[in-house]
Structure formats: C-alpha cells, structure tokens
Design a protein around this nucleic acid. Structure first.
Lengths: 252, 252
DNA sequence: AGAAGGACCAGTGGTCCGTA
DNA sequence: AGAAGGACCAGTGGTCCGTA
C-alpha cells in the first residue's frame, strides 16, 4: 500500500528496486551517513524514480495524511528534505540530522560523474555534447536516483567548491576557523568569497579563465555574485592605484 | 511624415541619423552593391533603428497603405528584404537584384566583428562573455544598423561558410561547378555538406573539434544537420568496415 | 532564525512556415 | 518555383520565495 504515492508519478515499473533505491537515498542524504554513499558507489547508475511526492494531489492528500506513522522510514509520503549542512572540519562526519562539508563537495564530484555519462551518451548518439553541468545533467542525475542533487543547491555553493579546488589549504583553514567560532553555514559560505577574489587578483582578475583552466571546476558556471565581486574589486583597486600614483586612467 | 512608421517601434531619438542609416542598409543589401558596404566600413557602429515595420498596427495599417508611392526608396513602408543569393564564382559580383556568395561570407565576418564588440563590452562591465554568436550578438548587430543580418539566414548557411573556412580551394571549385551548371543557391548549399563530411572523416569525425579549432569558425554553433550527417556517415563506414573484415563490433 | 529546493521567468537556440 | 526572415516554441540558466 505504501507504493501508491511513489508510483503516481513514476510509472516505469521497477517497483521493487524502486523502494530499495529510496532507502539508499534516504540513508546517504537524510541520514547524514554519506560514508555509506561514498563506499557503496555504483548506487546511482541507471535507476529511475521521480520522487515527486509532496505535490499532494486530491485523494492522496487526505488519505495519506491520516496514517502518519512518522518513522516508517521506507517510503513515507512527507518527502524528506536533505539535512541541512553544518560547518565541519576536513574529514569530520556531521552528527545528528546534519550533513558535513566533505559531503557537500562530494556532491560536486558526483555531478561531474553524471556529466561524464551524459557526455558519453551524447557522443555515442552524435548529439550536442554539454561541457558544463546543465539542466540536462540535473535531470539525468534525478532519473539515476540521485534525488538529493538539485540545481539551486549546487549553484548556491559552487564558489565554496571552487575555493576547495583552487586552494584546499585555505579552504580547510577557513572551515576550521568557522567551525571553531561556531558560525553557521551561511556565514561560512559568505566568507568563501574573499579568498577567491584574492586568488583572482593574483591571476589577473580573469575568473572565467581560472574556472575554465581547472579540470574539476571547468564544468561549473561562474556564479554571478563571484563575478561581480571580482569586477568590483578590480575597479576599486585600479582606481586607488591611479589615485596614489597620480596618473589618470591607464596606469600600466 | 514618412517617419511615423519607423518611429512607432524605435523611440530612441536620432530621427535624422535614423533615416540616413536606413539608406545605407538599403544600399548594401537591397541594392546588391556590397562593395559599398565593404569599403564604407564604420557604417555599422553605435547607431540604432528597430526597423520593425510590417508589423502593421491598427491606424498605420490603413493610412500607410494608401500613399503607396512605391519607389520613394528612403523610408517607404514596405520593408525591403535582402536580395536573394545566387551562386557566384570567387570574386564575382552579383548583377541585378541578387547577392553573391562573397557577400554571404562577408556577413559571417561582420558577425564576428559584432561578437568581438559584444565581448569587449561584456569584459569591461565584468559580465558573462559570450564565446559564440548568440541572440545577444544578433540583437547588437541589428541595433548597430546591420538590419540585413539575422539569425535564420546566418544559421542556414553556416556549413557553407565552414567549407569556405576549412578548404577554400574545394569551396571555390564547388562554386564554379554549380555556377557553370546553372544550379540555384539551394542546390549549392546542399552540395556543401558532402565535402565537409569528407573532411570530418579525415579528422576522426569530431566535427565539434573541427569547428572549435578553427579561429573563424569556432564562434559558430555546429549546425544540427551537419552533425547528423557526420554521425550517420561514421556509423555507416564503421559498419561496412566491420562487415568487410569480418570482425564483430570493436575493430581495432 | 537559517536553510533546502520546487517552481517560475526572461531570454536562448533552433527552425518553421506565412510571406513576397 | 525558390528564398528571406518574423516569430514561435521547447527547454535553459538563473534564482526567488513559499516551505519546513
């Protein structure tokens, strides 16, 4: 009986593997034990489930809300969101209903793998081949059972991942500092911008080049805000340099 | 009084330069004398005109259709289309109300210039910088007065331009042949696919790589049909090779 | 309050088909 | 008939804001 809601939107057979896979997703994301997800790799390939529950329709809306067993945990209808992230040190596993930052960065690696699949399928079929993590890739990830991956989340933290890629030492140090201070994820996320701008400054302000040049980062769009910060900072630095030297406009 | 229709959609002042520029556009494209367009370069920069006539609205629809002076030629309302292309030899200027293929290829070079402008503006502003000829570039071209450039046309002939870029000799030979035979543009256009597929075969079938590797071609999207032809041909060749050697699937 | 993500929206790539 | 291009459309990048 608990299948009905799930099947409502994913009419693609596989009902047994289906439930199985729901368990896995719940374990890796919801439960916070991403160790399981990391070791039990293969998990995400070639399965399907839309998991478009919570789009509460007519009859289910009423019937399901009744038998609220709360911890049946297999395919209950109130769709679990991923546990929120907390600031963790490198190597630290988040406890309680939280996810750590190693898990966050792991999601970026998973997206890369999904992109690679999409690319090889496209090449095989002689179709246009994406070079970035596009909507198509997010759709593919979802179909492959990685329902815990979604565009807004991935875009939200890209620059944090960028810092991790470009200067792991600095990234680690920042994580330790913000953990120690007991800061929340939002504060840590904000703090990731500054060292990135500094890196951009060092490398001639070309943030696109910095992204495109890095093997793991090149598949991600440069976030608008990071681009804006780099631009603003460059203008600012240029202006003050000009002021100091007393030159007008094009100091070399 | 002849301004009304033009101004209806382009409320951006400049009414004098406006008419001026309409003349130029008419001369270069409509008149077929693209020599003038080529020599009188600078023409296309920083002007504006929407030229969204023929979107006949309520009142004008009736009033303008009345004073049909037919050859006033400055800003008459029946918007002139570009003259159709004919197959010309390299260096040959089309006569009569026609445009030649050198002019066609020239349009691709102009688009490249527009892209370069759009790129430098984007960089200056610290915004996302297009690497291809996008809608934004077509919009910019139109605003700059190059109303004779439009997306469907440019996309239609990209592969012809590709052949011109990749093997000018072959392209020239094909033009001479099709001119001699008195073939129309459509036939010539179709014929451009074959030598391109041959080039792709030579270079390992990677048409995207071929485009992206060429300095002038890299800014154009690979046309769907060319991609499909390359894929079909590759499959075909692979299959027959496998059949001949008697191997199954993965021949070395 | 802080955070996750469904869902919307403006502008894209692609090209059809009403037009001349 | 052959051809030029306005205009449409499905699916994109981007992110807001109703939700938990």
């Amino acid at each position: 009986f608990h299948d009905t809601a799930l099947d409502a939107l994913s009419q693609e057979g596989l009902s047994e593997e289906h439930v199985q896979q729901e368990k896995e997703a719940a374990a890796s994301g919801g439960g916070g034990t991403w160790e399981a997800a990391a070791s039990g790799k293969k998990q995400q390939r070639r399965k399907k489930a839309k998991s478009k529950i919570s789009s509460m329709e007519d009859d289910e809306a009423d019937s399901d809300r009744a038998d609220h067993t709360k911890d049946d945990n297999v395919a209950t209808v109130e769709r679990q969101r991923e546990h929120p992230f907390i600031v963790t040190e490198p190597g630290e596993v988040a406890r309680g209903k939280k996810n750590g930052l190693d898990y966050l960065f792991h999601l970026y690696e998973q997206c890369r793998e999904f992109l690679v699949h999409v690319q090889s399928i496209a090449k095989e079929k002689g179709e246009k081949c994406p070079t970035k993590v596009t909507n198509q890739v997010f759709r593919y990830a979802k179909k492959a059972g990685a329902s815990y991956i979604n565009k807004p989340k991935m875009r939200h933290y890209v620059h944090c991942y960028a810092l991790h890629c470009l200067d792991e030492e600095a990234s680690n140090a920042l994580r330790r500092l913000y953990k120690e201070r007991g800061e929340n994820v939002g504060a840590w996320r904000q703090a990731c911008y500054k060292p990135l701008v500094a890196i951009a400054a060092q490398k001639g302000w070309d943030i696109d080049l910095i992204f495109n040049t890095h093997p793991r980062l090149s598949i991600w769009y440069v976030p608008t805000k990071l681009r804006q910060l780099c631009h603003a900072e460059r203008s600012c630095v240029a202006a003050s340099a000009a002021a100091t030297t007393g030159t007008h406009h094009l100091t070399f």
